[in-house]
């Protein structure tokens, strides 16, 4: 049986930061999706970025490179 995909999610302060990170990660060919913030994770009505947890190091590195502050990085 194939292993179940594990996702991670980045929660942002600003939606603009989400677009900034998305642009950077896309340029590195890291698969991702912008999606609504799951209500059980945050009461914010903003946008979050979902990624494959196996890419979490690259995502953390990307956050550092683009110089944004994020609320949280969570494993789903």
């Amino acid at each position: 049986m194939p292993e179940k995909e594990v996702f991670g999610i980045v929660l942002f302060h600003s939606v603009s930061s989400a677009f900034r990170l998305e642009r950077h990660l896309k340029s590195k060919n890291i698969p991702l999706k912008l999606m609504p913030v799951p209500r059980h994770l945050d009461s914010d009505c903003g946008t979050s970025l979902r990624f494959f947890w196996k890419d979490s190091d690259a995502v953390r590195e990307g956050i550092k490179i683009v110089g944004i502050e994020v609320k949280e990085i969570l494993k789903l």
């Binding site: 942002f12 302060h13 600003s14 939606v15 603009s16 009461s43 914010d44 009505c45 903003g46 502050e69």
Partner: peptide, 17 residues
């Protein structure tokens, strides 16, 4: 409204919001 921090009733502190 900024589309961010909707639960907060005070203005966000970060740019550009």
């Amino acid at each position: 409204g900024t589309g961010s921090f909707s639960a907060e009733e005070c203005q966000p502190s970060f740019f550009p919001d």
